[in-house]
Design a protein around this nucleic acid. Sequence first.
DNA 1: GTTCTAGAAC
DNA 2: GTTCTAGAAC
Length: 746
Amino acid sequence: MDMDTDENSNAKGKEGQGKLIMVILVGAPGSGKSTFCELVMGSSSRPWVRICQDTIGNGKSGTRAQCLKTATSALNDGKSVFVDRCNLEIEQRADFVKLGGPQVDVHAVVLDLPAQLCISRSVKRTGHEGNLSGGKAAAVVNKMLQKKELPKLNEGFTRITFCHNESDVLSAIDMYKSLDLHTMLPHGCFGQKNPDKKVQLGITKFLKKAEKPSKTCSSANTDKNSPTPQPTQEKRESCGKKEESSCTMSRNVAMESEKGESPGIRSLKDKISQSDPPTLAFPSISTSDFKFSHEKAAEIIVEKVEEFMDKLGNARLVLVDLSHGSKILSMVKAKATEKNISSTKFFTFVGDITKLNSEGGLRCNVIANAANWRLKPGGGGVNAAIFSAAGSGLEVATKQQANSLQPGNAVAVQLPSTSPLLNREGVTHVIHVLGPNMNPQRPNYLNNDYDEGCKLLGNAYSSLFQAFISIVQDKYKSVKGIHECLGSTPPELQKHSEDGHHKFKRENLQNLERSKKWKGSQNSTEGLNQNNNTVPKKSKHWGSWAQALYDTAMHPERHTNSVLETSDDVVVLYDIYPKARKHLLVVARHEGLDQLADVCTEHLPLLRTMHAMGLKWINKFFREDGPLVFRLGYHSAPSMRQLHLHVISQDFDSSHLKNKKHWNSFNTDFFRDSVIVINEVSSHGKANIMDDESLMSMELRCNRCRSAHPNLPKLKAHISKCQAPFPSTLLEGGRLVVEPSNAPLS
DNA sequence: GTTCTAGAAC
DNA sequence: GTTCTAGAAC
């Protein structure tokens, strides 16, 4: 299993040394480019040179040409290079990319942190080399970010790493720190959110491309010849029923080596195929350091596995141990055979749990960690190995979930997109588990009380398996959800759902109740089968406060004081909490049409009627209230029952506009323009729904000039004055309705 | 959807 | 200290 990089790496130069790397940092002032370089260079065995345009002229600001010259000579000296300048536009980085070649890999590391953070760092800094401090910083950062062009592989990069938060940055630092002269990183795009959006996240984070390189950046990822590694025969040890599928992949690891790529650092481009079942690899809990009886532990493992068999669907459980002579593996194998447990769903495996994919060819999207109660690294064994392999991002992400763990419990943690464990091994989650302790030298010693011990160990495995199932279900729901919206077939459990860390945090901590919004409509432990359509359709529960529009639509005669106009198909009324000077609602009167998700082709005439009704009222406002700009659209996931079209002026001048959600519900992709909805329904029979929670927590940007603002009061102060033209994307396609006399000349 | 409020951020 | 956010309750 030991890898021999000298033999296997195809990236090394002629003289036995790996290729040089030029890392072009991409990020606004304050995004942390210089810190990134310093931290990597501070403890890297690879020689690096940092080229900083702010200081290259004898400590003062220099030119791009000077940077290029210095970069060239550093590379000629056999040193890897960091290009520490903003590099936000394609043109600014093009000349640097050209320095790449057979001896030099050109990487981009994109520090795509929130504008707000960059601004606040820039404002605070005093001694920065670029002298960008004080109040001008915000204006400069905003202006630069408006021109931001995220790098793509077709510019000539061999690898692009996107960092969206500080945890991503830490993981990327760890990754570059760990590179010695021989090792190289896999090629491709890693951690990208939405490749096509310049400023905001358009599509949901569901499709975050962390598990495999992004298809949209495919120029370096088109190699279809890579073998698809499978567990080697001698390592995979089937339990229970005789293996049905043949396991003839013992040479796959060798084949990789022949191709010249080191298995430990190879890209995952072909590893995570659509047919990979979700798999949890777990070590035996408590039997090592906690001295739990192997015999009893084996019994409990098999008992719990059996209990969860029916809930697994096509997911798999794998008990892993480092040693071939493992007592616990052979005991578990024997007991599973006795119980006739399916060996496709449960088997044992010999190998390092942090290198199952790269060294053993076994793909596991989730691994369990035999954690300590503090949920901290160290202590040796599996815990130390997993924390070390996952990079410091795991500790940060764990801390966000829980500070400690009680015996018998488990907590699932999603790995940051730049974690080496994710990028090398395809592991998306680590589930920390704490079992009972029978070792008098460790805390919470049970003094040989096996009654309590067995109970706790059983609970630990139940918590672990349930957490795994929740992860699998969560992904499935998310992926299925978005594909339903897009009218396509879910590609099984490919992409991992970021889906807002809040939701993840809530659903994966054991014993936490599930999201109240869908309570009762989903069965969390139903059998998982990613290949059928058994997942029931979500039927949203509407609270009593959410019924007002429905009641008005069904009985407009009861609401004559608020209804402006009634027809057979719609009622029109002012929003009682208007978010702008003019904000009205056109409410459909069809029974059973709760929200946009319920709309299909048969509702096209109704959608057109609603739009026309909106336009009629807009024209009335133009006549009576002077120049205003309107937008008509639907909320992807409305709070109020009954399909309703918002007709809203774009001033957003209202005391009822109070929070981020209010703003983002009208100013992100969550708001579905009526004209676009009509087009989508006529061409696909459905409207695209963008109801990812993360859209609601996006940074606050002006709807005209797109500048970012730290909080709602500051945004409101800005929009009250901003006179910039609306973005062209809104002006095109009739998404904005402007009074004809005020329309820009075309 | 809003209101209330704890506590985070400043 | 005040401002602001975000989650719970309705």
